[in-house]
């Protein structure tokens, strides 16, 4: 298998080309109490298939994760320093997959997996609660 250039590995991380994004711990910095292992996969630009990263790609992924984690930490510190009155974002923006030592597999779901409940109001003030993001299920009256 040809080795993908380093730039591809970075693009795979930053550009969301990772099949399984990687928020799990690094080997050098294990999360206390976490016994799971992480899975890192990149898309090979030649074949379009998922494969394990090369050492260079892996290093690039780890560096990108470290930077992202530092940014998250800064954001959390800012949040604690000045509690906002608006609802915080709780889910991660990207999913992450973990394979556990006992064979169990888990996925931390991303923000886009959340169900949104929306309101529509017609000219007469009647409200409808719908989950559809663009096309309401039951329509308001129209003018």
């Amino acid at each position: 298998m040809k080795r993908a250039p380093r730039a591809v590995a970075i693009a795979a991380m930053v550009g969301s080309l990772c099949v399984s994004s990687v928020l799990a711990e690094e080997a050098a910095q294990p999360v206390p109490g976490d016994t799971s292992s992480s899975l890192r996969v990149v898309i090979d630009p030649q074949t379009g298939q998922a494969r394990a990263p090369t050492p260079e790609e892996l290093q690039a992924l780890i560096e990108a994760e470290r930077a992202a984690r530092a940014a998250e930490s800064s954001a959390r510190t800012a949040l604690r320093a000045a509690p906002a009155a608006t609802a915080p974002e709780v889910f991660p923006t990207e999913k992450s997959v973990q394979r556990h030592p006992n064979g169990m597999v888990s996925v931390r779901l991303p923000q886009e997996s959340l169900t949104l409940l929306k309101i529509t109001t017609d000219e007469n003030g009647n409200v409808r609660l719908v989950h559809a993001k663009e096309t309401p299920v039951a329509h308001a009256e129209e003018k």
Partner: peptide
């Protein structure tokens, strides 16, 4: 602005657990 009242969902999903 989008009329969102609520958002909800499971944090994680699992397979092949005991």
């Amino acid at each position: 602005a989008g009329g969102v009242l609520a958002r909800a969902g499971a944090f994680q999903i699992f397979a092949n657990f005991p």
